[in-house]
Amino acid sequence: MNFKPDEATWMAYVYGELSAEEHAQVEAYLEQNPDQRKRVAEWQTMRQWLRQAQDQEVIAPPVLVEDTKPSFWHSAYWRLPLGIAAGVLLVLVTAKLLQVNIRYEARALTIAFGETKPSSVAVPVQALTTEQVQQMIDRSVSENGRQWAADWRQQQAMVTRAIQTNHATNNQQMDELVNQVSAASQDQIRAFVASLREENQRAMKEYLTLSATEQKLYMENLLVDFSKYLTEQRNQDLALFQNKLLTMESNTNQFKQETEQLLTSLIANSGTGSKTKLTAY
């Protein structure tokens, strides 16, 4: 037989993780080489030594669950549109506060804050005949400008309103979402507590049934043993009685026999006695 266990096989043998076939091989090898048993024994001793290193008692710290999801407002999805909306709003608010007035008048673009001063651009005065035409043009231009400004204001108001409503609906949705989330977490806690309670209850019940059945079994065994003991005791007592009675009987018989013998000997003696007496006289 040329099977010789290597390090790995020895370890698997010592820790009982060999297949039945390999195990048998190692056993056979040990039969043939008894000196190797010492090595195995040494490993077993080492394992016993190692087992002296006991576990340290430790209490698990509270669970630290960090939320890895970024918060809703910081998500990239929302950042851009919100930024743009905020920018537009800022521009509009500043425009409103500073009363920006932009107009194109008399061939000149005027951007003014607050009251608009009449344009100081000199209009070249033409001949008297063109003056009227000029005035007409001026009037129509200023009319246009006013109309344009009115339109502008109206549109500005509309945009502001649209943004406000948009903002309001967003806020509402957000609130709903937050509510939903908080409600969900409450539900989770409740479900957790319920499941905990249920599990505890079940464990207790199982434990009680288990202990009850065990106790019952134990009591039954106890009673059976006790009754066995009683029967045994009674049998022994009966045997004792019988024995005693038998002894008494035999004693009586013996006594009877002895008495009989005594009587016969007495009778015999008295017979001879009388005979001797008879002969003596």
Partner: peptide
């Protein structure tokens, strides 16, 4: 399930701690 994860920690903490301690 965060609760289940928490329970797993409770179950295994002693073993893992002792592993690290050794």
């Amino acid at each position: 399930d965060k609760n289940a994860q928490g329970k797993l920690v409770q179950l295994w903490y002693k073993r893992i701690y002792n592993f690290c301690y050794k």
